[in-house]
Design a protein around this nucleic acid. Sequence first.
DNA 1: TTGTTAATGATAATCATTATCATCACATGA
DNA 2: TCATGTGATGATAATGATTATCATTAACAA
Lengths: 143, 143
Amino acid sequence: MKKEKEIFNQFLSRKNLRATPQRDLVLDVFLTREDHITAEQLYDVVKKNDPSIGQATIYRFLKLMLDAGLAREVDFGDGVMRYEGSYNHPHHDHLICRGCGKTIEVVDSVIEELQRRVAESFGFELTDHEMYLYGLCEVCRKK
Amino acid sequence: MKKEKEIFNQFLSRKNLRATPQRDLVLDVFLTREDHITAEQLYDVVKKNDPSIGQATIYRFLKLMLDAGLAREVDFGDGVMRYEGSYNHPHHDHLICRGCGKTIEVVDSVIEELQRRVAESFGFELTDHEMYLYGLCEVCRKK
DNA sequence: TTGTTAATGATAATCATTATCATCACATGA
DNA sequence: TCATGTGATGATAATGATTATCATTAACAA
Ligand SMILES: [Mn+2]
Ligand SMILES: [Mn+2]
Ligand SMILES: [Zn+2]
Ligand SMILES: [Zn+2]
């Protein structure tokens, strides 16, 4: 919590950008959320604390967070981008239930290594990847 | 080529839909394309043969192809959906160059098996997955 | 305090995709 | 043949997320 704010403010000053109460507030709200949040959802929560905030500010904030390396985008394929904090939250992939939408964060070091090898076998140097596993959770399977 | 048309027309009659010259034409064009094509690109090519065709027909056609199991969607994350034929073209994943956009179709049976296991370890039954490997190809690396 | 310049919020614009709707075409049956 | 029901088409409007624009406000360094 404290560390992210520090990093964000360092990022701002390094880029000659300014600390503003709006950015402070949005960051606070973002940090309380642990899940994968959309800009709209973030906007709705922030508005409760400051009804005068514009949603453009939310979108701009999220871009900054990506740039600062404090957030990453998650695309579940439903046409809306989601965001998750990346500080103290290393790379992982997602397992999503087609029934109820529940998501689980997963990581498999063997898969990660094989991905690198597959890429190399085609002369590629792997920079990143996206992997989404879709299925039915235990609950949804009982129907 | 011949088989896909047969399957598509069977699909149409089974669903009480009609065979039309537009659908014939669009299917012909789609089948000549081997890559991952966008609706817009497909529309542009089809227009050369029939300038009177509407792009809504293209979108509607692609939906039918998905429904018929003759095509699948590919999402490279650039905001545009792409389509590839799925007849005689089994599941695979994609390796994409961040430099030039070149795509390579890859499949690794060990990864596929591990994906299933990861899902199972969380009580999920895996139905499908998406995996996109991003990197730099040999050519783009030399810069 | 002031001057420079970034930030904000309202709003318009984008862009891919969908929905709407009047018209057309095709199959079927009187 | 003709009427008719219904799916298909193409033009166009609508949608929805995201981005751009712009006049105004506010940080912050000198
Ligand atoms: Mn996550
Ligand atoms: Mn492919
Ligand atoms: Zn579920
Ligand atoms: Zn390349």
